[in-house]
Amino acid sequence: MRPRFGVTALAILMAVIFLFPTIVVVVTSFGSGRIVSFPPQGWSLRWYAEVFTDTMWVQAFGNSFAVGILAAALAMAVGSALAIGATRTKIFPASLVTGIAMSPVVVPGVVLSVGVYMVAVRTDLTGSVIGLALAHAAVGVPFVFINVLARLATLDKQIEEAARICGADEMTTLRTVTLPIVAPSVVIGGVLAFISSWDEFMVASFMNSPTFRTIPVVVWGEVISGADPSTSAASTLITVISILFLALAAGLPRLRNRKVAP
């Protein structure tokens, strides 16, 4: 049954409301005035020039990138090890492994922040790329775990069994059969982990120091103290980078399949 016109119109109105805040931020970033206004009085790229030259923004982008890449790499390794382990070994009960892998979804960011802060203060890890990346990696693990688990569920176990029958040992099977098959899911999970770190504010704000602030922490400070259009420009860049990464990752498996197909 096709939805009736009224319902469809309502849904489209809601779609516009969903998209509207993103559009507002993008449009205000191209304004020429000193005050953020929508619609802007005139148009310019000066706020992008400011974001690309101001040390505060440049450093924050650099920090966010470093933390995000490191966190995503760690999350990819840990998340896929947990997912493959949960379905391929019986050392730990699968439910325990799943619980551990999914626990970051359950614990609110504020709660984790206080815990991480208490540990980081004692271990001298506040204000460092490593300290924040270690925490962000754990938060990113569920994304990798779910994606790899979903891929493993569709994977025909006989393919791995065939490799074993042909004489490959456990590690060879993992390296030459299992990992290549789950690789696209690992990458998608990794991109989601990157974005979760890239957007994460709570832990980052507890871990910040005068010399180490990530992009969301700087944006927060600007929003609280009265933003100027450079905040919109930085926000637009955050969003564009997130969506670009996702689009690349979403296109990846299809490209792979196309190459493999005869």
Partner: peptide, 16 residues
């Protein structure tokens, strides 16, 4: 697109 715009950015936009 909305989903992948961060909470902070969208909240900033609602403030505007």
């Amino acid at each position: 697109v909305s989903f992948w715009t961060s909470t902070l950015v969208r909240t900033y936009s609602w403030q505007l």
